[in-house]
Design a protein around this nucleic acid. Structure first.
Length: 767
DNA sequence: ATCAATACTTAGCACCATGGAG
DNA sequence: CTCCATGGTGCTAAGTATTGAT
């Protein structure tokens, strides 16, 4: 069998015929099923046809849903249920149809495989609501049937055109394609910071020379020795040009390419598990390239080699047809392991570990795991008091192991530290709780601790915090000589010892559960503080603030975007200018009616607060910006005209524009000299001016709020906690309770991932 | 019991589509 | 309507935890 998800257009006629036929056929589902089990040869085709059917149904379902939610808004709950019921009924009939379909489909050209298979198609994946059955069956078996079409391999290497070459010591180098590819990897990264790292250059050079040697060395007898003498710029320029060309394609061409790509990927994007069609996550084999480790990774710059079908293991059910490997190749291994949830795997050459092709985040298995994770964290609620009381008591235990265990648990619980497993020499030096060393913790009496270490992804954890007095004492003991820099703080501990101990409190309790628990608990507490008032935007601001609290707890960071500093400066200047404009209008008011000042002196106070110098700076800035604006406009317009083969704008046009700016500059100058504001006729009215001031004030508060939010968020990543730590049902309950559309909180992909939460939690749900 | 291998979750970053401001 | 910033998504590295072998 090969699972084929034909696009609707190509098979529409056929389908509609089938639908009509099937409408007259009404047989019981059970019978159909049993017949299907016995059937053999045609099953592929049955499956295939049914797939299409499912797809059509899914589409219908979607359409109906969309329509419902549009028409009925939030009150569509009942309608939805009804809709899906109707559809379920219809989908039961699918099985009937399939029977009928079999002959038709097997004769059609749709299916290429003749392998035997038997699969019950129970439901379309969108109908399957695993969270509505709470049967706690054995979860070591992940599936009974699993079939898929394998993986997509990266395209073969396309050698560079002969005029594009690597240069060594000024001389062009003829490289064998294998080595040229590696040189190309480096060239493509020339603009990144990575290539500046000495370790990156060294590792690259080593692997590059190795590949070169493997393939017979350079072909024009250039001997490459020094990295310094390599010149990649010609290759980099070539890539740049190619990129530009791609950008230049017409929108239609782009669309066409995208469509073709999607069409090609379709068969790999979906798989079939227990009769349901579900999405595959990463169905593409990782392309070769230069390893980009995070932080000071000793293997940075090494060549990540190309993966061939021979390196790849496929996991399918025993009866599943084996996908065709790429021409001239064989699969490394075919496995039938239903205790795991990967579809395919291969070994990667940098760290010698496995890479897996797995289900997408919206899949049943991932959903169940996710659900279980949060349920486990919720279960900790019932044990946390005991755990805390225990570690508090054990802080004074006479046994060092117990004390270490108590302190470690405290740190994991209170500061949400990770477990901190041991790492080998050829990885970046990062730590978590158990692997903390002497130098990562500084003690400041009476009870302040400064944590400073690199955690996962080499993200710095820096916190100056007050801790429990006994924790402080213990840390002091752990740091006593002979301990010193380089020594483990918890020398008797590692995650497996700690976790084993934690299991005593609750089955399945491990260090990471505390992170989930505390993150979700914090979110719940923060959400509880939000009053149900104000606009959706205001509520979202609060929600994000709550989210941020969690992200900070978990130390989820992001690097500030390259434009951040400038964009903050711009926003600040913008606010200053708005303030100035406001003052200007207020002056104009006084010009019209001096008595206004007596009526409300406070209102006009800020006029005096603005110094002459400040004002002049603002003038200059505005004028400067206006000039730039017109110059840019002029250039851009001419570029466009050149491209369209039109006549360029005359310089006089630019002069004309700039003259306008000159006028403005003069006006500001006059206003500054005389103190008389020149507002336009329509604004020579106290009421109108006051309105303007009010509008400006609104804009200022808005801009200031946005700026503050931007600043607060610049180094904090909210996404990670939203995706991994905060029980999605909290967000769902928040939305339902506060009348916030779920789209504001979860993106489309997150809504799919968290469908179980969206459909199971109501406004009263609590973590 | 211990260690290595395997499997699965969590993480930040690059890229690009999109939508709001001008 | 255009432009640019921003958020969403894909990618894959880097963790944690469990399983399996000795």
């Amino acid at each position: 069998m090969s699972i084929k998800l034909k696009d609707d257009s190509s098979s529409e006629d056929e389908e509609s015929t089938l639908v009509t036929v099937s409408k007259h056929k009404k047989s019981s589902k059970k019978i159909t099923k049993s017949v299907k089990r016995e059937s053999s040869d045609e099953d592929d085709d049955i499956l295939h046809a049914a797939r299409k059917k499912q797809k059509r149904l899914k589409k219908d379902l979607k359409d109906t849903k969309t329509r419902n939610s549009h028409e009925n808004g939030k009150s569509s709950h009942k309608t939805k249920k009804k809709t899906s019921k109707t559809i379920k009924k219809e989908s039961e009939n699918i099985d009937d149809e399939d029977k009928t379909l079999a002959d038709v489909a097997s004769q059609s050209q749709l299916s290429s495989s003749t392998k035997a298979s038997s699969v019950d198609i129970k439901e379309s994946s969108e109908d399957f609501k695993w969270w509505e059955n709470n049967d706690k069956e054995d979860d070591s078996i992940k599936w009974t049937t699993l079939r898929h079409n394998g993986v997509i391999f990266p395209p073969e290497y396309q050698p560079l055109p002969s005029h594009v070459k690597l240069y060594y010591d000024g001389k062009p180098v003829d490289l064998p394609p294998q080595a040229e590819e590696v040189a190309g990897f480096f060239a493509a990264m020339l603009e990144t910071d990575h290539v500046k790292l000495p370790i990156f250059q060294k590792n690259f050079m080593h692997d590059f020379l190795e590949v070169l040697k493997e393939n017979g060395g350079t072909r024009n007898n250039v001997e490459i020795k020094d990295f310094e003498k390599l010149d990649f710029t010609k290759i980099a320029e070539y890539f740049q040009v190619q990129k530009e060309q791609k950008k230049q394609l017409s929108p239609q061409e782009k669309k066409q390419l995208k469509l073709e790509k999607e069409e090609f990927e379709k068969p790999y994007k979906f798989c079939e598990i227990d009769g349901r069609i579900e999405q595959v996550g990463n169905f593409r084999i990782e392309p070769p390239g230069l390893f980009r480790g995070r932080g000071a990774h000793p293997k940075n710059g090494k060549l990540k080699r190309r993966v061939y079908p021979e390196d790849v293991v496929l996991n399918l059910d025993k009866n599943a047809p084996i996908p065709e490997p790429p021409k001239g190749h064989k699969w490394g291994e075919i496995r039938h392991d239903n205790t795991v949830q990967w579809l395919s795997m291969w070994r990667e050459n940098i760290t010698n570990s496995f890479k897996y092709v797995r289900f997408a985040a919206n899949s049943t298995l991932k959903g169940i795991s996710d659900f279980k994770k949060f349920e486990k964290a919720r279960m900790l609620k019932d044990h946390i008091d005991k755990v805390r009381a225990d570690y508090k008591a054990k802080l004074k235990s006479p046994k060092t192991l117990d004390r270490q265990m108590a302190v470690a648990t405290y740190l994991i619980d209170v500061f949400a530290l990770r477990a901190g497993g041991e790492k080998s020499e050829d990885e970046a030096d990062t730590v978590g709780c158990c692997s903390l060393r002497y130098e990562h913790v500084t003690l400041k009496p009476p009870n302040t601790v400064i944590f400073d270490f690199l955690g996962k992804d080499s993200i710095r954890y820096y916190q100056e915090v007050e801790v429990d007095a006994q924790v402080f004492k213990n840390l002091k003991i752990f740091k006593r000589p002979p301990s010193g820099p380089g020594h483990q703080l918890f020398d008797r501990l590692d995650p497996s010892i700690l976790n084993k101990h934690l299991q005593n409190y609750m089955p399945g309790l491990t260090a990471k559960v505390f992170r989930t628990y505390n993150a979700s608990k914090t979110m719940q507490d923060q959400l509880d503080l939000i009053p149900n008032e104000g606009t959706v935007a205001e509520k979202m601001l609060r929600y994000n603030a709550a989210n941020r609290t969690v992200a900070i707890l978990c130390n989820h960071q992001r690097t500030v975007t390259k434009g951040h500093a400038t964009s903050v400066q711009k926003a600040t200047e913008r606010i200053e200018e708005l303030e100035w404009q406001k003052v200007r209008y207020k002056r104009a008011i006084l010009q019209l009616d001096k008595s206004e000042r007596k009526k409300d002196p406070n209102y006009f106070k800020e006029i005096d607060d603005l110094s002459k110098e400040e004002e002049l700076t603002i003038h200059k800035r505005i004028i400067e910006r206006e000039r730039e604006k017109y110059k840019r406009k002029f250039e851009r317009e001419n570029e466009k005209r050149k491209f369209d083969k039109e006549e360029a704008l005359p310089d006089s046009q630019l002069m004309e524009w700039l003259a306008k700016v000159d006028d403005l500059e003069k006006q500001y100058q006059r206003e500054s000299d005389t103190g008389i504001i020149e507002v336009r006729e329509s604004l020579k009215n106290v009421e109108k001016l006051k309105q303007q001031v009010e509008r400006l004030e609104k804009r200022i508060t808005n801009a200031s709020l946005q700026l503050k939010d931007k600043e607060d968020n610049s180094t904090v990543a909210l996404g990670t906690s939203k995706i991994n730590y905060i029980d999605p049902r909290l967000s769902v309950a928040f939305c339902k309770k506060f009348d916030v559309p779920i789209e504001k909180v979860f993106t489309k992909t997150l809504r799919e991932k968290f469908r179980w939460a969206i459909e199971s939690a109501d406004e009263n749900w609590r973590f």
